[in-house]
Design a protein around this nucleic acid. Sequence first.
DNA 1: CTGAAAGCGCTTACAG
DNA 2: CTGAAAGCGCTTACAG
Lengths: 342, 342
Amino acid sequence: MRGEVMEHTKEYEKKLTISDVAEALGVSKTTVSRAISGKGRIGKETKERVLEYIQEHNYKPNVLAKGLAQLKTYNIGVMLPEDYTVVDLPFFQTCLTGVQETAVSMDYDVLLTLGKENDCTQLERMIENHKVDGVILMRTFTKDVHIEYLKSQEIPFVTVGSTNYQGVIQVDNDHKSACRELISILLLKGMKKIGLIGGIESHVVTQNRLQGYIEAHKAAGMALDKDIICVNVEKDILIEQGVERLLAHGADCIVCLDDAVCIHVLNKLRRENIQVPDQMRVASFYDSTILENNLPSVTSLSFDARELGNVACKILLEAVEGKQTDFRTLLGYEVVLKESTK
Amino acid sequence: MRGEVMEHTKEYEKKLTISDVAEALGVSKTTVSRAISGKGRIGKETKERVLEYIQEHNYKPNVLAKGLAQLKTYNIGVMLPEDYTVVDLPFFQTCLTGVQETAVSMDYDVLLTLGKENDCTQLERMIENHKVDGVILMRTFTKDVHIEYLKSQEIPFVTVGSTNYQGVIQVDNDHKSACRELISILLLKGMKKIGLIGGIESHVVTQNRLQGYIEAHKAAGMALDKDIICVNVEKDILIEQGVERLLAHGADCIVCLDDAVCIHVLNKLRRENIQVPDQMRVASFYDSTILENNLPSVTSLSFDARELGNVACKILLEAVEGKQTDFRTLLGYEVVLKESTK
DNA sequence: CTGAAAGCGCTTACAG
DNA sequence: CTGAAAGCGCTTACAG
């Protein structure tokens, strides 16, 4: 490390306060406050005079002080998984962008917090320090310490992704229907043994998808074959073994529960010299950029992560501001058929 | 969207305030405040009594109120590029984790803001709303509106990545040396025509790497061949054309300025049936997980993004708290030689 | 329609 | 060593 040394002199230009504005205009702080917030009765002309002045002198209320007076922070917390993988990362990032975007549009800011499946300390700290008015959980578990904590604290929060906990505001894509539809289409196309690979069992989303898979088979009058369902294959080697098992059991199509798994599956098939789609059909569950350039192009489900973030944030802010909200909001999806299932 | 409707009843359990604590103990708020902050003289016994009580009753000071009294927020802003690509994303994410980690350890929180190369509005809003005490810029440009704005506002800030602006606190890996070393090693291994591909010219980091490339050639007494340097190849098609150009000009090694580019390069070579490393050597600039599983494994530089975030945050907080800091901090790197350059 | 005053939960000179 | 009081910059009953 090399470096010159600097001394910080603290002489930021003084910011205007509401008192300055009131004094300059010869009115009370109350009046200025009302002009800005739009609450309470105020003369139209007075209001305009105030607004014009603050516009011109670029006065911005101190949100901290405002918050203290109202016992609010104008911040929401977003809890991002710390143990992301390269593949869900773009999803989280895009979703976060959506959250941030609508938060800002309602003059809130986003406080970031990281957490793992069983570690709630960061979230607790943020809540106990009174730093946020509400929280968005970007991922859920069947047993979820974060949800339990937030419920116990009676803090407004919404989950991105479904949960079975009662009374939790949740926003999700309709993964069950999406999976059901994808599988139904594949069955309709004549595939008889559709294998499933990937996913972590403790994630609620995995269970929803499995449910969709089951429903699709039921609707088509097809029996389930447990031998061609491989979950919890997190390691590369497990994925390989999973593929081998699917091959051994005569699967004619492999549906991957996420795109990272899909990449490994494609690699494995390539190494085994199995042609897609001629000798094996493949589909995946999220149209990430990683799969985008694959040859052949891969059939997948498509979700709008940004929209999901937008909606989650909007609903949270409604809850924070005491409005009624739906407990459960399900967003759509698209099945994008490509060459890999031709 | 379907949903039951919920009504939010606002009856959170009342939080303890400093007054409650003072009253319960029969001391003044001043005393309580001093016991907590450790500032000012206070009897040892009194202090212990207070600390014990707040521990037991789980009192947490309201950071907002504290902040207002001190005109601080105990938040730092982190400005993340909105136009990330799949490839730098893991870097930003890991770095962000580092920032967050040390922020929390010093009882600050991280406010997230998104920005694009020429759009400073979000940052301005955050500053004008008095929401943060300092800012970390996660990416820099040769002409950088964010840096210019922050300088003009005299807000403490540090950049992750180098900049040529004067008087800016910056933390970076030593990309120039890293590139110089990598290229020198490759030259030593006997490569004669090392092509460079990728990078965006307006990023400071690209210029530093180019500089390292040049220095390595100078040190080895090798002439530069501008025909085998391809920057600003953002589109897939441009990358392909770049590779073709490198091939046409007889390059015996391709160094990719980022891993996304590298993937395209590898794909292109595969399609052209050019074997790595036998017919062409390849190296890349960041050991991302994306390249991790490639066959053959790819030589690359390795940076500790988390450490970078840790250091950036630590320095920012020193600046925020009025301490002296170095203007420029350069962190190390590793050259990881693998099969692709055998 | 407008304002004086109290209050949000802290900190910090100042006085003792 | 301890405390009363003023202050941070807002909001909001309450009174007029």
